[in-house]
Design a protein around this nucleic acid. Structure first.
Lengths: 155, 155
DNA sequence: CATCTGAGTCTGTAATCAAGACTCAGAGGT
DNA sequence: ACCTCTGAGTCTTGATTACAGACTCAGATG
C-alpha cells in the first residue's frame, strides 16, 4: 500500500491548499498579520485587482480564517475591517516556514527584508520541526509517513 | 514607517509564493516527498491536467527545487524521474506546517489521514516556532516584525 | 509488423485574472 | 442644498491559464 494508492484530495495539505493555494491568498493573510486591515490598503499594497481581492477576502471569511467586522470611528463614516480569526492566526507557523525558506534561497544581496522576533527576548524566530519526544528534526533526519484512520483510498 | 510602506513583492513570502502559489505546486512537491517520481504517476494521483503538470514541473526544475534525471532500468526503455533537490527538500518544514494546520482545522470525523513520524523514535513530528534563544513561541506569544537591510520601499 | 506504454504536445472550450471605469453612500466644505 | 471626496466595492472587456481529451513519438513487447 503506497502513498499513491490513497486519495490525493483527502489530505490535510490538499485541503489547506484548497484555501490558500493561490498566488494572493497567502499574501493577504501575511498583510493581515502585519496589521493591514482595510480593503483599499490591501489593494494598494498588494497591487491585486479589486475584484480578485473581493473574492479572496470572501473566501477567507467563508472559511473562517478572517472576520469582517464593522468599525465606527467617531466623526467618520462606518467602515469595516478584516481581522484574522484564531484559525487564521494559527497560520503564523506556516508563514514563518515559508519566510524562512525564502530568506534562505531567495534573499537578495542585502539579505532578508524583514525579521520576526520574539517580543520578550528580541531573538529571531524560526519554524522548526520537532517530534513530540522533543527531538529536533534536522534536514537530514529521516521521517516516515504513517497512514491513519482518516485516510481514504483513491476513488 | 509601517509595513505597508514597504514593497509587497520584496518579501520572502512573496518570492516563495511566486513559485509555490498555485493550487498544484505544493501538491506536486508533497507527492515528490512521498516518493512519487514519474510523470504519469503524478498526473494520475493528482488528477492534474497533463499540460499543466508539464508546466509546473518545468517551473520547479527551473527554480531549482526539482531535478529531472534520466533513469535507465535494465530491460526497460530510458525514462526520467523527478526528484527534489536540497532546496526542495528544505520545504519539509513548510509542508508539515501546512499539514498541521489542516489536521487541526480541516480534518474529517476520522481524524488526520496521515502522520509524519520521527523514524528513530516513532514520535509524531510537528512544526513549531522557536526563537534562537530557545524559547518556544506559543500561539499567544507576541512577535514583532523588524525591517532589515533587504527591504525596499514601495515603488 | 502491430501493439503497448511513458511522457509529453495540441486543441478547443471554460474559467480566472488584470486594468480600469462605474456605482453608491455618507461626510465635509461653501 | 449642492458639489466633491473617499472607502468599498461591482461591471466590463480583453488577456491568461486551466481543463479534458485527442494526438504524437520512440522504444519495448509479442
Amino acid at each position: 500500500m503506497t502513498w499513491s494508492d490513497y486519495s490525493s484530495d483527502d489530505c490535510s495539505i490538499a485541503r489547506t491548499a484548497q484555501i490558500l493555494g493561490d498566488r494572493w491568498a497567502v499574501l493577504v493573510v501575511r498583510d493581515l498579520f502585519n496589521g493591514v486591515r482595510r480593503f483599499d490598503e490591501l489593494q494598494r499594497h498588494l497591487g491585486i485587482a479589486r475584484d480578485v481581492l473581493t473574492k479572496r477576502l470572501a473566501l477567507l471569511v467563508d472559511e473562517g480564517l478572517v472576520e469582517k467586522r464593522p468599525v465606527k470611528v467617531e466623526g467618520e463614516r462606518a467602515r469595516h475591517e478584516y481581522v484574522l480569526t484564531e484559525p487564521g492566526r494559527e497560520l503564523r507557523t506556516m508563514l514563518i516556514a515559508i519566510m524562512d525558506w525564502g530568506d534562505r534561497y531567495r534573499a537578495g544581496a542585502d539579505g532578508p527584508p524583514v525579521q520576526i522576533r520574539h517580543r520578550e527576548c528580541g531573538a529571531p524566530v524560526h519554524a522548526r520541526l520537532m517530534c513530540t519526544d522533543g527531538h529536533e528534526i534536522a534536514p537530514e533526519t529521516r521521517t516516515e509517513l504513517v497512514v491513519m484512520a482518516g485516510a481514504r483510498f483513491r476513488g
